[in-house]
C-alpha cells in the first residue's frame, strides 16, 4: 500500500505540533532536572505558552533577529537553537551556548539571530529596536522580533521603545505574551490599560490573537511580518495565553486559585493542535511517532549535557573584553 503525502494544511499542523512538542518535552525535562538538583540557579518555564513562540517563529527567517526574556526557552528552541548546546548551557557546562556563563536566562545563538534571553524585564525591547535599525540601515531585508510578557508593559523602557520604533518606522515585531501573571501578581492589578490601547497610543498597528491556538498565532504573525518586511513599520502582536507553572520552578503559587491553573491546563495548546491535526486527517500513529522521536532527541541532548565538562575560570576571565584592537593608522 503506497503512502500518500498528507495535504499541506495537515503537514503544516504537524510541523507546528512537532515544534511545540520539542519545546514542551525540553521544558518538562528541564523541570525534572531542576527538581533533581541537576540545574543550578533557577529557571522559568513557558509550559502552556508554546503556541506563542512556535507560531511566531513559523513566520520568521533564519537571519531575522530575536530578543527574548527570562521565560525564553521556547523562543530559543523555536528559533532553531541546537538542543545539545542548549541543555549543555542550562546545566552549566563548558560546551554550552554561553560556555556556562549565562544559563537559562541568557541563552543566545548569533548564528540564528537569537540575541539572547534576558534577565531584566523589558530589556529586550530596545535591543530589538536597535537590531531593527541595523536591519533597516544595512538593508538586510530582515526584521527583529522581541518577546515580552504583560509585566513588561509597566516598564518605562517599553514605552520609549514603542515610541522610537513607530517614529522611525522600524522593522520590528513586538510580541506581547500576555499570560495574565506578572511574577506573583495578576496583570489586572498592575496595568491601568491593556496592550492594544498602549499600541494605539503610539499609533502602532496591533493585533490580538488566541495565544493557545498555534495556527492562529502563526497566521497573525505571518500577516504582521509581511507588512513589517514590506516597510510598513512595527506591529504589536498580543498573544493571550495563560501561565501554567509558577513564576519560577519551585514556586508554590499560593497566590493563585486552583481553578485558574485548571483552566489553563484545559486549554493546552498541544492538545488543541493534536485535535486539529487529527480532524484534518493526520493519523494518530504519526502524532505518536512525533512524540517518540522528540522524546528521543531530548533524551540524547540531556545525556550529552550530563556528560559535558565543567567550564574553566581562566577561559571565562579571558572573555570579559575582546582581544586588543589596534587603531588603524
Amino acid at each position: 500500500m503506497g503512502r500518500t503525502d498528507p495535504p499541506s494544511a495537515t503537514s503544516q499542523l504537524l510541523e507546528l505540533y512537532r515544534a511545540m512538542r520539542l519545546v514542551r518535552e525540553a521544558e518538562e525535562r528541564l523541570g525534572a532536572l531542576f527538581a533533581d538538583g541537576e540545574i543550578p540557579g533557577f529557571i522559568h518555564l513557558s509550559i502552556g505558552q508554546e503556541a506563542v513562540s512556535v507560531g511566531v517563529a513559523a513566520a520568521l527567517q533564519q537571519h531575522d533577529t530575536l530578543a527574548s526574556n527570562h521565560r525564553g526557552h521556547g523562543h530559543a528552541i523555536a528559533k532553531g537553537l541546537d538542543l545539545d548546546r542548549f541543555f549543555l548551557e542550562i546545566l552549566g557546562k563548558r560546551d554550552g551556548y554561553c560556555r556556562g556563563r549565562g544559563g537559562s536566562m541568557h541563552v543566545a545563538d548569533m548564528t540564528v539571530g537569537m540575541l539572547g534571553a534576558n534577565g531584566i524585564v523589558g530589556a529586550g525591547l530596545p535591543i530589538a529596536v536597535g537590531s531593527a535599525l541595523a536591519h533597516k540601515l544595512r538593508r538586510t531585508g530582515h526584521i527583529a522580533v522581541v518577546f515580552f510578557g504583560d509585566g513588561a508593559m509597566a516598564e518605562g523602557v517599553l514605552h520609549e521603545s514603542l515610541n522610537l520604533a513607530q517614529l522611525w518606522t522600524l522593522p520590528v515585531l513586538f510580541v506581547c505574551e500576555n499570560n495574565g501573571w506578572s511574577e506573583f501578581t495578576e496583570a489586572a492589578r498592575q496595568l491601568a490599560t491593556d496592550p492594544q490601547r498602549m499600541a494605539a497610543a503610539y499609533s502602532m498597528r496591533a493585533l490580538q490573537v488566541d495565544g493557545n491556538d498555534v495556527v492562529a498565532v502563526a497566521a497573525a504573525a505571518r500577516m504582521a511580518v509581511a507588512q513589517i518586511r514590506a516597510g510598513e513599520g512595527p506591529c504589536l502582536l498580543e498573544c493571550k495565553t495563560r501561565r501554567v507553572r509558577g513564576h519560577y520552578e519551585g514556586d508554590a503559587q499560593k497566590y493563585r486559585d486552583a481553578g485558574d491553573i485548571a483552566t489553563a491546563l484545559r486549554n493546552d495548546p498541544l492538545v488543541r493542535c493534536e485535535v486539529q491535526a487529527i480532524a484534518a486527517g493526520a493519523p494518530q500513529e504519526t502524532i505518536d511517532a512525533i512524540k517518540a522521536e522528540i522524546a528521543d532527541r531530548v533524551d540524547a541532548a540531556v545525556a550529552t549535557a550530563r556528560s559535558g565538562a565543567p567550564p574553566a575560570p581562566v577561559d571565562a576571565f579571558a572573555d570579559v573584553y575582546s582581544p586588543t584592537h589596534e587603531l588603524p593608522s
Binding site: L133, H135, A144, E160, N163
Partner: peptide, 20 residues
C-alpha cells in the same frame, strides 16, 4: 532621537549586535 536615554542606549546594544 527622542528624549529616551534608556531606549537609545539599549538600541545601540541591539544595533551593535547586528553589525553597526
Amino acid at each position: 532621537t527622542p528624549i529616551s536615554e534608556a531606549a537609545i542606549t539599549g538600541a545601540a546594544v541591539g544595533a551593535a549586535m547586528t553589525g553597526l
